[in-house]
């Protein structure tokens, strides 16, 4: 799998699994070990689709689920 942000390539399990968008969809969020960006990942294809941007509020450094799964 390839990080959308920095291009780091490695097997999916090298990317830190964060949490799912919905339990019944194949979309999850994983963090790139190199640049620490959050990738929205299609677990069926082991493919990083986009970067989910963290908010800058003090209470939420992680990404939202909006828009990455219907």
């Amino acid at each position: 799998m390839k990080c959308v942000a920095c291009g780091f390539e490695g097997p999916v399990d090298k990317f830190r699994y964060l949490y799912n968008a919905r339990i019944d969809a194949s979309m999850s969020m994983r963090q790139c070990p190199k640049c620490n960006e959050w990738n929205a990942v299609d677990e069926l294809k082991d493919e990083a689709l986009e970067i989910v941007n963290p908010g800058d509020a003090p209470w939420g450094k992680s990404a939202g689920i909006e828009g990455i799964s219907a």
């Binding site: 070990p33 190199k34 992680s62």
Partner: peptide
């Protein structure tokens, strides 16, 4: 470690 998470706001992940 590759990633060390020092952000105290988010929830416990013992590994990181």
């Amino acid at each position: 470690m590759d990633i060390i998470d020092t952000d105290g706001n988010e929830c416990a992940d013992p590994q990181f």
